[in-house]
């Protein structure tokens, strides 16, 4: 059991890790083919894994409904929405429209999913404003610099800002292209080095905590 839970996954990780790291340097179509096949396997495994997820979701909400926990009505809504969408999706063969006529699935997509998703994303604008009001304070010199930069960029990105302060457009472009790009590159270099180091540790079995279980 220990072999199946510990050694085997590490061996698989080592072999596939080295193979796919090496794949990057091999331009031969066979190597590309291997990458495509592996990604397809991952999709298939991912498909089966979805069963795990859906089971967890159904179980969690079934327990809530069974015990009539606080807010169990939301769980009921989830069941109805999910099963209803699956039913109309199967009925319409996954098509939103057939010969120009909207199917029931199309109706769910256009009149439920589109506005609901749009609403969630639109909330962002309100949250940005409230977060900015609460946090954007010139507590220190650095914070003041940030504040001024933010105001310039916000002005420079809209026609009214450019109309009121004509220089703000060019200044905001400069801030985005020069200051912002260089800082992001610096962060990216750090992130990339960290990711490469973590990848090496995983490939060579130095980092194992993601497998669950502690030290052997």
């Amino acid at each position: 059991m220990i072999f199946l839970r510990r050694q085997l996954p590490i061996i698989i990780t080592l072999i596939t890790g080295l193979l796919f790291a090496g794949q990057y340097y091999v331009p031969h179509p066979a190597s590309e083919q291997m990458l495509t096949s592996a990604t397809k396997w991952m999709q298939i495994i991912g498909g089966f894994a979805l069963i795990l997820g859906v089971t967890s979701l159904f179980h969690q909400h079934a327990v809530k409904i069974g015990r009539q926990e606080a807010g169990w009505g939301y769980s009921l809504v989830l069941y109805v929405a999910m099963l209803g969408t699956i039913a109309v999706g199967l009925w319409a063969n996954g098509k939103e429209s057939v010969d120009g006529a909207m199917t029931a699935f199309g109706w769910v997509y256009n009149f439920m999913m589109v506005p609901l998703q749009g609403t969630m994303f639109a909330i962002l604008a309100f949250f940005i404003a409230s977060a900015a009001y609460r946090s954007f304070r010139a507590r220190s010199r650095e914070a003041a610099v940030l504040l001024v930069a933010a105001v310039i960029v916000m002005m420079g990105r809209v026609p009214l800002g450019e109309y009121l302060i004509p220089l703000s457009g060019d200044l905001s472009s400069w801030i985005l292209n020069v200051l912002n790009s260089s800082v992001r590159r610096a962060i990216l270099i750090g992130v990339s080095l960290g990711a490469i180091a973590l990848s090496f540790k995983i490939i060579f079995g130095v980092e194992r905590s993601y497998l669950g279980g502690g030290k052997e």
Binding site: A125, A129, A132, M154, M155, L160
Partner: peptide
């Protein structure tokens, strides 16, 4: 208008 509103709020 929203950008200017946020700037004013800040």
């Amino acid at each position: 208008a929203t950008h200017v509103a946020i700037i004013v709020l800040v």
